[in-house]
């Protein structure tokens, strides 16, 4: 016992180092497994507040480009006013109209924190549980797909960015309708990779890539980007595409959270089929 104590006293520096280092590494691994302690992430109240106070000051710097974006979006909405009106109408007379059911609701949100320089990037939004945001909702902007909500607190939401190696989304080549899965390789923030496409189909550089709508989260047809490189390997039956993302993640201010109103129904039905 005494020699053990002597040993601990003598090597306390090294032992303490090993203990703290192991603890940190366990934290990292748990984090990678999506079991983050909920009070330690940026949607928690303390750091969320620090970020929003910072954001309220520096928001002014990007005001001009944000205004341009909003103007542009306003113009495009005016162009489609007829269809937009139709959707709103359905929402108001929901009791009587059985022809149209509104499936998606769009909740505007502002980006409080964002990064592009890590392997697993996350975005913090200024909306949360009180505004009706919940886990696994899709996030898009007027230009294209942004990511998926991961955690929510009362007033903030933490979003897995498309620039995150843990996120894969189901994507589709608009021109031909073939689908594959799209992910980010962790290098250049402007390009993502799409794989699992059959080798025999024709894909041209410049073709549009959209969401397939097969996942419950994203509506069908949201823009992801355009094809910038086609890699057809002779050894496998699948080809890989490099996709230039439509959204500039370095310059992100206003986004929308997508709420799928029929989500529960679809999950229940799919679980029923799966259990068979």
């Amino acid at each position: 016992m005494r020699s053990l104590l002597n040993f601990i006293v003598r090597y306390h520096y090294f032992i303490l180092f090993i203990l703290i280092e192991c603890f940190s590494v366990i934290l990292v691994i748990q984090y990678n497994n999506y079991h983050r302690a909920s009070f330690l992430n940026s949607s928690s109240n303390v750091s969320g507040r620090v970020y929003s106070s910072f954001h309220s000051v520096f928001q002014y710097m990007s005001l001009k480009s944000a205004n341009d974006d909003l103007n542009q979006e306003l113009a495009s909405i005016r162009e489609n006013l007829k269809t937009a009106y139709k959707n709103n109408e359905v929402k108001i007379v929901e009791l009587y109209d059985s022809v149209y059911i509104q499936q998606y609701e769009f909740l505007p949100a502002q980006v409080l924190n964002n990064s592009t320089n890590k392997q697993n990037n996350y975005i913090t939004l200024n909306v949360g549980r009180k505004q009706g945001v919940s886990k696994e909702m899709a996030v898009i902007s007027s230009k294209g797909v942004i990511g998926v909500v991961k955690d929510v607190s009362d007033n903030f939401a933490s979003v897995i960015s498309l620039l995150n190696r843990n996120l894969r989304i189901s994507a589709m080549v608009k021109q031909s309708g073939y689908f594959g899965s799209l992910f980010w390789e962790g290098k250049n923030y402007q390009f993502a990779t799409m794989e699992d496409l059959p080798n025999h189909i024709k894909v041209e550089i410049g073709d549009t890539i959209i969401t397939s709508g097969f996942s419950i989260m994203f509506p069908k047809g949201e823009l992801i980007g355009t094809v910038s490189e086609v890699n057809q390997s002779k050894s496998s039956d699948f080809m890989t595409l490099t996709v230039k993302l439509a959204v500039d993640f370095r310059n992100l201010t206003h986004v929308m959270v997508v709420k799928n109103l029929l989500r529960k129904e679809q999950i229940e039905l799919e679980n029923l089929t799966r259990n068979d």
Binding site: Y13, F17, I20, E21, S24, V25, I26, L27, V28, I29, Q30, Y31, R36, A37, L40, N41, S42, S44, V46, S47, V50, Y51, S115, K118, N120, Y122, S158
Partner: peptide, 24 residues
């Protein structure tokens, strides 16, 4: 120190472990 930076960047443990390594 590392854990404080981690809290703001959503990278729990990464900066903490690197800082402890450096401190050691």
């Amino acid at each position: 120190l590392g854990l404080s930076v981690d809290m703001f960047t959503d990278t729990i443990g990464m900066h903490a472990s690197a800082s402890v390594f450096m401190g050691f």
